[in-house]
Design a protein around this nucleic acid. Sequence first.
RNA 1: CGGGACGUAGCCUAGGGGCUAAGGCGUCAGCUUUGGGAGCUGAAGAUCGGGGGUUCGAAUCCCCCCGUCCCGACCA
Length: 488
Amino acid sequence: MAEKITPRGVDYSQWYIDIVLNAKLADYSPVKGCMVIRPRGYAIWERIQAEMDRRFKETGHQNAYFPLLIPMSFLKKEAEHVEGFAPELAVVTIGGGEELDEPLVVRPTSETIIWSMYKNWIQSYRDLPLLYNQWANVMRWEKRTRLFLRTAEFLWQEGHTAHETEAEAVEETMKMLEVYRDVVERHLCLPVIAGRKSEAEKFAGAVATYSIEAMMQDKKALQAGTSHFLGQNFGKAFDVQFQTRDGKLDYAWATSWGTSTRLIGAVIMTHSDDKGLVLPPSLAPDQAVIVPIYKNDTKAAVLAYGEKILADLKAAGVRAIFDTDDTQSPGWKFAQHEMNGVPLRIEIGPRDLEAGKAMVARRDTGEKAPIEAVALGAAARELLDAIQKNLYDRARAFREANTKVVSDRAELLAFYGADQGEDAGTAGATGGFAEGLWCGGRDCEAALKAEAKVTIRCLPLDRQEGVSGKCCLCGAAARHRAIFARAY
RNA sequence: CGGGACGUAGCCUAGGGGCUAAGGCGUCAGCUUUGGGAGCUGAAGAUCGGGGGUUCGAAUCCCCCCGUCCCGACCA
């Protein structure tokens, strides 16, 4: 009644905004383009952080922190890099009331300041590899923003590593891409395609960029994580030379890799429905909520029953809460917890108490069934696992149902239909992922983007064997297999 | 940065020159209820996005600005 969610089919963008605001994940800020991440949203980020951070440590990385402000001159040391970021830099020109000698940029990413330090820290192959990560905020002055998906300031992690050899740096690049794939698929339940970016889509300053790409419910692609092989570009730009094992000098090889709060947007857009947020149990701040139903004469007994069940759930390792708020009706609570994406709802009333059971409802499917109270802890664990699996399977089935292999231009364009304007990208629209052969030509890709707003999302790593045939865009000899899509 | 839509209480909406700006939801207090967004009574809450102008009189008409959303260009 109070909060209304615009149905996905009516207006997908508005549906997304309604979920973010009504589930109290975030709010608009007084500063244009920035967002406030509210506790319910931040709790999700903390879970993503914890999981990522654990994997980084397991793979030998250490956390550090580099400054927010970077001398403008640093950005300019790597030509492609500055060109890529120049339009979206925020620049500080006054400090302490006085004009600064050199403008400072608010970091859009930290390659430059980190490599300026690496120069001091790396003298010998014995100093390598250097495997650092930082959790930080960055700022990119975006023209058009969307909560979580694209904001002027966002939170992320950026890994920056330095290596002795090219092979080692390439290995690191792929290793971290795999860490991302694993965390995102396992914990966020987002099936992704890992691949290499085309030249047009790669990071400014990288030799090669790799990403994991997910499909949202409106069939558009969203880049969920990125890993760059930077070659010796930053090593040379910042003069990071080291003595090699055979006594010569060489420039350090670099990688960088990042994931951001955008992942929260991806989770929302992949799993949620018209009733509100749907969260994978592993990310949900509260995994189960107990809602008591009672009249005055049964209140005490029902509440006692609930406390017992709460204790059992906690003992079973379930993050559970007991909603004893007396000012709201059960029906209101049902709707509210659905809005908030709590994976399991456990209803207990006099009838359940008498039968020694509880009604358990799944957020993902809406299924509701009575379960023996004594078995509730174990049953809840199983259900949470089942939800986690179902969300992934469901998303993967959706992606597969909306992926089409195309062999020529006409087929590709037909797949994206005539709805290139108004309805492009809304649920029910045509399109999805198109898989086709590509010649590798930049013009070919640019023309497609201009014509149909479709871009090459990546060249999937596991589908490059035996590429032979014609480019589906221009008919020339193909060199790659590519995934095409409209993208966020 | 271009095109469009919109800004009236925490939220949604009415009023489109003339009494004290109306209603619903929410909030607060009390009572009563509770198996899918309950009910009654009472209360608080608005410089009508901001500024300027036209007018005897502006939420209402005109101009400028700001903000949000949508579409386009750019991007994680």
